[in-house]
Design a protein around this nucleic acid. Structure first.
Lengths: 210, 210, 210, 210
DNA sequence: CATGAATGAGGGTTCATTCAT
DNA sequence: CATGAATGAACCCTCATTCAT
């Protein structure tokens, strides 16, 4: 009977994944507020009401999804950090991971960014307190990873900027979001490798040196 | 009678400005979709219905506003460009202009950015074709100004990056938006001069050199 | 211009009354929860959304209505109290007032009674705190009026029951509600005078004496 | 095989009882319409869907329960009637039976009362015609018992009221419901003996005599 | 039988837009 | 012009009931 329970759990997880997969498409395309539950349901092959068997409301879908996606990126990023390698190499690796893992849903990261600024208005954060703080922790962690890379660079004497680490990591984050933003406007993802190389080049030398 | 016409026109323009001034506050705070016409009207001292005497719909208010705001920035930026000065100096000047002109409504730029990605979904663009293309032209112009700065830098041999000018200008744009985003999350504008200096520092030297 | 304001205010009040009049019919028939805003709107000659121009939500309609109806009864009842008359006469008068004022909407009182027990479950009472406490005060006032009658009876030595005044007034209240309940089941109001007389008879002598 | 059948039947009956026991709690607390099948199922230790193995729908659960509960009361009440005793004594006994049998679920009687007035709206009565008429018969029977008591009182010359027996019995019913209503508002049952004594006192002497 | 899951049919509420005064 | 008022069109969420396993 344990096997049955396990199977059912797996089926349920698979369906949740179906919904989240549908949701990421819709959220990426339209942003949080303009996304309609009905679109997500339809894309996932469910009726709107069925979504409520898996998630308590729209916000939970969104937050669960955000946590899942960032979780993937954070885990992969952490594993990829290699203090033996140069800052440039580590950064490049990290960028490739981000761009690869988000893949065709690269715009979702922009949606979360936007959600972040909007969430300041909602007071109902109480409802999904746990998920929400997890979401925020993940966002912090992403910046943390960038800072970790910078830290390594500092130790290896590859970084000599007078700017604070926090500023540097925020700038790198901005460049990443900027790239996603460009792709979104262009309607499709660009070449990941080129994008990563460009960012690395800009971060390491700025505009003045090659 | 010509004087009367002129007066009426001036009055109308003044009222439009009142509405736009109210709109920028609301749009900055809540973004395009979450902003309610009623809030704008109230802040402008009109009733919701009155807005329709000056603008045909919500989108026209937004686009008119965006065109106005970017227009200001573009005009001021163009005037400030000085080929005799260094790239860094020009960039710094430009950043100060952007941050100063948007002022407390700095977040409005983020809203336009977000609107930009959402507008791809609307089919109604036909309705405001003229305004919309003007809006897009302005956005292009802003990038154009950044490219102009880079161009000057190249000519003065201050920029040696292997990256294309378009990429460089996009990166700078990303850094600007990133700074605004940070301020939005923090709930208030930071120190403009410091922000400009940091961006200039990062753009000129990247992370590796000071 | 003051006249215009006054007229508009009157029109508005009239429309509110239309809605409340529609609402009392629906609420009387179906109770609070089963009443649909759409039915009320239709009966009042408005669209569902229009109701929100006059009341902030369903509960406000209900509470406003309840306060209005009980207010009428309480005012009329207070005026009718005459310490010079006998307890029986006062009670009879009061019953006639209640039955007359509620009129064809007699069942509304049952709905409020039921709402009262259900409201214990809602936590949103905060939202309409003011109206809600007014509503409760009115309910208390109705009992208070009955107690006042009893008090007069005591002073006139017409009441000799060993029961507490509070108990007596509650019993009388129960008899009133019981009469309304009967009418509701029968589908129509019965003869008001007969009903009042019966209750007076029962209250004064109980079952054992005539 | 007959034993097996019997056993299965007993098991089934036991499960039905579990559901009904859960239902009475929920219905008492929230009334018919606000009670959710899910709550009943959970309290009974079943899944929501399982309820449909025992009852065809929500209404059947309610009606079955009502019939069961009133059945108990009616049976006990009938047995307790003693023509040798005084009207007051018989009434007191009957009240104690009602209050005791409903016990902590005293509010259920109010729910049935309310359901009674609402049921006039449902057209589906056809569906549960049999149960529904049984339910109504029980309600009539309760009144019948009260009338029986009055009848005994009349025969024993203890009742001299000019009011019709039907009216008297309805009044007594109202007093009972009023007591339950009070308890519901207070959130808990009061002292049964005191309550019964008060009602007996009021019914026998009214307010004017002690 | 038991149950997880699916869903149709609402119900309350919001908001941009229109219209009559 | 200004505006109070009206409303269609959504949208989120709930729940009794059905169904497949």
């Amino acid at each position: 009977m344990n096997a049955k329970k396990a199977r059912e759990k797996a089926v349920r997880a698979a369906k949740e994944a179906l919904i989240l997969d549908a949701a990421i498409t819709v959220f990426s395309e339209k942003g949080y507020h303009e996304s309609r539950l009905e679109d997500i349901a339809e894309k996932a092959g469910f009726s709107k009401a069925s979504l409520y068997n898996y998630f308590s409301d729209k916000e939970e879908i969104f937050l669960t999804l955000a946590v899942r996606e960032y979780g993937k990126v954070i885990e992969a990023s952490r594993k990829a950090i290699d203090p033996q390698k140069s800052f440039a190499e580590n950064l490049r690796q990290n960028l490739l991971i981000i761009f690869t893992l988000f893949g065709e849903h690269f715009a979702f990261m922009l949606t979360t960014t936007n959600y972040q600024t909007m969430s300041l208005l909602h007071i109902e954060i109480e409802k999904h307190k746990h998920l929400f703080s997890k979401f925020q922790k993940h966002l912090t962690d992403v910046q943390g990873i960038l800072q970790k890379l910078i830290d390594i660079g500092r130790k290896r004497k590859e970084i000599a900027s007078s700017l604070e680490d926090a500023s540097l990591s925020r700038f790198i984050g901005s460049l990443i979001r900027g790239m996603l933003f460009r792709w979104k406007l262009e309607g499709k993802m660009g070449n990941i490798t080129v994008a990563a190389d460009e960012i690395v080049e800009f971060v390491t030398h700025g505009a003045t040196a090659s």
